[in-house]
Amino acid sequence: MTWGRTIPDAVLMHGGPAAGPRPTSQRDDTIVQQITLSKRINELLVLAVLDHGPAHGYQIALSVEERTGGAFSFQHGTLYPILHRLEAEGQLRSQWHGERRRRKTYHLTPAGRAELAAGADELERKFRALFGLIRGTHAA
């Protein structure tokens, strides 16, 4: 995905301090699942596009690029691992069409819709905190 060069390297705690109480045991504390911010954003972009209706892979890529004014775009096939991961996690459902030349369509599942809502809230909190720090307007 094409985006700023610094943000994709940032690693945030999945369900970090703002998301709720921290795990209590030391083991849980050390194996807290971490995901990169860029990965999370990618997933939410895909889920957000599919929230408007089923789409083929290329339509998702085009739609993300158009609707973000070119700020985000999927290049070099990076879309497919995301789609397949979300499908394996049950947030998307895919369907093949056609006989000779098959095409795959992705649909959002209720689990994906719930994940989109939760992810949007989580991301909003994190970015608010981020910009609060950057612009020196730390939210109380």
Binding site: Q75, H76, G77, T78, Y80, P81, H84, R85
Partner: peptide
């Protein structure tokens, strides 16, 4: 442009391999 956008590069292939 279509090839550049859709054909997986090495990183995407590694991700797909790890997935499948």
């Amino acid at each position: 442009a279509a090839l550049r956008q859709a054909v997986p590069d090495d990183q995407a292939l590694a991700d797909l391999e790890a997935r499948h």
